[in-house]
């Protein structure tokens, strides 16, 4: 269980990005969490407010974007979403399917920022 560390990583990455944008007010941080990332989204949300307190991101929300586990089925010749993360078989034809196309992600996808007078 190291979700607190991960939240610190999220806040660091988001704060860096915000700084590059000239430190606008950030209202939300969107984070993609793959189903196979082995991360408890609830624990991330739980510690977020504590970690952002006193940073430039204070007052922002953490929004988790769930990323499904998708593998390549070499029999159907197409990508398939797996309903469970411990059964790497094509849900349609039953062929073993271990080639992961998505589902391990753990990344800050985007920031929601207030765009004040920027627009001309």
């Amino acid at each position: 269980m190291h979700e607190l560390n991960l939240v610190q990583g999220i806040v660091e990455a988001a704060a860096d990005a915000a700084e590059r944008m000239g430190n606008p007010r950030v209202t939300a941080v969107n984070v993609r969490v793959g189903r196979l990332a082995g991360v408890d989204a609830g624990a991330l949300l739980f510690s977020y407010d504590v970690v952002v307190a006193g940073t430039t991101l204070e007052g922002s929300r953490l929004q988790i974007v769930d990323v499904p586990l998708v593998v390549w089925c070499s029999h159907c010749l197409e990508e398939k979403e797996l309903p469970e993360i411990n059964r790497f078989r094509c849900p349609q034809c039953g062929t073993d399917a271990g080639e992961i196309r998505s589902g391990r992600e753990l990344e800050v996808e985007s920031l929601e920022i207030e765009s004040a007078e920027v627009e001309a």
Partner: peptide, 16 residues
């Protein structure tokens, strides 16, 4: 004041 979404795409474990 309106809000907009700006893409970041930074891995949380990037440093590691």
């Amino acid at each position: 004041m309106s809000t907009r979404i700006v893409e970041v795409r930074a891995g949380v474990l990037k440093k590691n």
